[in-house]
């Protein structure tokens, strides 16, 4: 029995390849996730995230490799897979001319959820998504954040075991995004396995485990801590009212091994040794900028890893 529990996996992906003509969307992807875990796939547009999600749902057949989703193969056991997953595609896709409750019940109907189960699930879902007071409103008249929440509860009405979300918070305001992630965390705590893709690096920190994806490959994966530990360099954050001037000054140093990135109104300077730190500090003080050594975020890691890869390629 114990062995069974130990080997229980939500999703196992082995050596997945998929090409569209000349374009290689996936170039050997391996992932393993556990039940009740939020697994994030982080990467820029065109990394291959959506292709991966569509293969998991059985909407696409991979060229090479196999997928084990809750013990089923999406290619050959499509029906079994679809009964057990909830999928939220990248584009908001509910019926704008149907009301909130009509949309929800339509999906309940399609999954042949019994009337009793609907009666039980509906108030709960309406409640935690706080859509209760908008029951009668047309989905097309909802705000972006509310649409997203409605799409989410529509994928939850048949109580799936695994949730596949493709950039669920794309284009949603920061407050709604935060609320959305709180909901996801609650769902995961209740035992739901979640696979989520995002291009927002700040959301990566909220996953249990994550993989960084670039050009159809996973660059690294692990918990957010493990991923950032792979950073292997030091990081200084620079704040100044005239950040562009500071940046020009740092660029003019032409020191090898230093990389400067802009993070909103701040600069992140990646470096390797004390000698470099001294040079950076001197330059920044010259411009009256403030400096602070910080722990690298997932985004810093991602940028640094991409840079390394780029250098390798050169």
């Amino acid at each position: 029995m114990i062995a069974e529990v130990e080997t229980k996996r939500a999703l196992t992906i082995r050596n997945l390849h998929k090409s569209f003509g000349e374009v290689q969307a996936l170039r050997g992807v391996d992932i393993q996730t556990k039940p009740g875990e939020i697994f994030g796939i982080i990467g820029p547009d065109g990394a291959g995230k959506t292709t991966l999600m569509r293969i998991l749902c059985g909407l696409m057949v991979p060229d090479v490799g196999d997928v084990d989703l809750l013990g089923f193969d999406p290619v050959t056991q499509t029906h079994e897979v679809r009964e057990r997953i909830g999928y939220m595609p990248q584009r908001f896709s509910l019926y704008p001319d149907l009301s909130v409750v009509e949309n929800l019940r339509f999906f309940a109907d399609l999954y042949l959820v019994s009337k009793e189960d609907v009666a039980q699930n509906e108030p709960r879902l309406m409640d935690f998504s706080r859509l209760q007071s908008f029951r009668k409103r047309k989905a097309g008249a909802l705000s972006g954040g509310m649409k997203q929440k409605l799409a989410l509860i529509c994928t939850l009405i048949h109580t799936p075991e695994l949730l596949i979300l493709d950039e669920p918070t794309f284009g949603v305001d920061p407050v709604s995004r935060q609320e959305f992630w709180t909901i996801l965390r609650d769902l995961a705590n209740d035992g739901l396995s979640i696979i989520v893709t995002t291009a927002y690096m700040d959301e990566a920190q909220l996953c249990d485990r994550l993989a960084l994806m670039h050009h159809g490959k996973l660059i690294t994966q692990g918990t957010p801590d493990e991923v950032t530990r792979a950073f292997g360099k030091r990081l200084l954050e620079v704040r100044s009212p005239d950040i562009l001037r500071v940046r020009r000054g740092l660029d003019a140093l032409h020191l090898p091994g230093i990389n400067v990135h802009r993070f909103g109104a701040r600069l992140h300077v990646v470096y390797e040794n004390d000698e470099q730190e001294e040079a950076i500090r001197l330059t920044c003080h010259g411009y009256g900028a403030e400096l602070e050594e910080i722990a690298p975020s997932v985004e810093d890691t991602f940028v640094a890893l991409l840079q390394d890869q780029g250098e390798e390629a050169v």
């Binding site: 999928y87 595609p89 896709s93 509910l94 019926y95 704008p96 999954y111």
Partner: peptide, 13 residues
Amino acid sequence: EIGTLEQLMVTPI
């Protein structure tokens, strides 16, 4: 056009 076809396709229908 509105993307619901994809949503329908991942249901068991």
